[in-house]
Write a protein that binds this DNA or RNA. Structure first.
Length: 294
DNA sequence: GCCTAAATAT
DNA sequence: CATATTTAGG
């Protein structure tokens, strides 16, 4: 991205650039239809990629709105902090999150805490209808009435958490800041606080030496590295129903046990299946009017 | 209101 | 039993 704008008048120049950008956008006919798959079914099955539920314009528009409002909120919130330089997010789009494997009916919890049922069918259902139904559900019993689903701290989430804590330093590593820096949709301050509590216990017990970055209250590392750039969807369990664990500890695949944690161990490309990940297109730091944003 | 530690729930 | 949520105190 290079700047070619006229330094004399910035505001109007930026407006012009926006217009320029808009006119440069592909027309509707140039875009791949939402209903069209990007890869062939053979390729998909070869890589165990299951087709996403159909997305409609409603989904896309809603995602765009959420993104915009989220950006606005972040911008206003970080104006007077001393680590503006850290906040270089909202630049790039998601790169690594990919749709999870869905076999049959799967309940996914929206950021609003609203359950949506994804019906994966070989032949499609009426997409508009399902979208409308979703919309209605969203509006009817939105957020406040329903209690939030239980958050699952996947290795990915935890890694992001650890990275943020490390880069923030011990002083700034408080739940609210961590939550903001993680930039995870649907993640609440309480979630982070709880996890932070456990994490501190872990660090206290298992040598703090292993996590040396914690003591860098003044982050000396170049923080230009895109840390919290891409939005991430917090995996939620609808309600982790009593799984009858009587004999041995069995874990759901994708969750991890405890904190014996590999600093950078899990760089495998196992990001195929985590519970709760969905969405392909440029989505979505979702935000709604929630009690916890200022 | 926010943060942390402890209690409670799943 | 481990982990996440909720509550309570500062």
């Amino acid at each position: 991205m290079e700047e070619e704008r006229d330094p004399s008048c910035k505001t109007s120049a930026s407006e012009e650039r926006v217009q320029e950008w808009e006119t440069g956008l592909p027309s509707a006919t140039d875009l791949t239809p939402l209903s069209q798959y990007l890869i062939s079914p053979e390729l998909a099955s070869a890589f165990s990629i299951t087709a996403e539920p159909f997305q409609t314009m409603l989904d896309v528009n809603r995602a765009s709105q959420n993104t915009i409002s989220s950006l606005r909120r972040q911008n206003s919130g970080f104006g007077d902090k001393n680590f503006k330089s850290l906040c270089s997010f909202m630049e790039d789009r998601c790169g690594s999150d990919e749709p999870m494997v869905v076999d049959e009916d799967e309940v996914v919890v929206d950021v609003d805490g609203v359950e949506k049922r994804k019906i994966q069918s070989v032949e499609n259902v009426e997409e508009a209808d399902s979208a409308l139904r979703m919309e209605n559900l969203n509006e009817d019993c939105s957020a406040r009435t329903l209690k939030r689903a239980r958050l699952v701290w996947t290795p990915q989430l935890h890694k992001r958490f650890v990275d943020v804590v490390g880069h923030l330093g011990i002083d700034n590593a408080v739940p609210k800041t961590i939550m903001q820096m993680m930039n995870v949709e649907g993640l609440t301050r309480e979630n982070v606080a709880s996890h932070l509590q456990k994490y501190r216990l872990f660090v206290k017990r298992q040598g703090p030496a292993s996590s040396d970055q914690l003591f860098a209250s003044t982050p000396t590392v170049p923080q230009n590295m895109p840390l919290a750039s891409m939005p991430y969807v917090a995996p939620m369990q609808p309600m982790p129903m009593h799984m009858g664990m009587s004999g041995g500890g069995n874990l759901a695949p994708g969750s991890y046990s405890g904190f014996e944690f590999h600093p950078y161990g899990m760089s495998r490309e196992h990001q195929g299946h985590w519970p709760g990940n969905k969405f392909g297109p440029p989505v979505v730091p979702n935000s709604h009017v929630s009690p916890n944003n200022k």
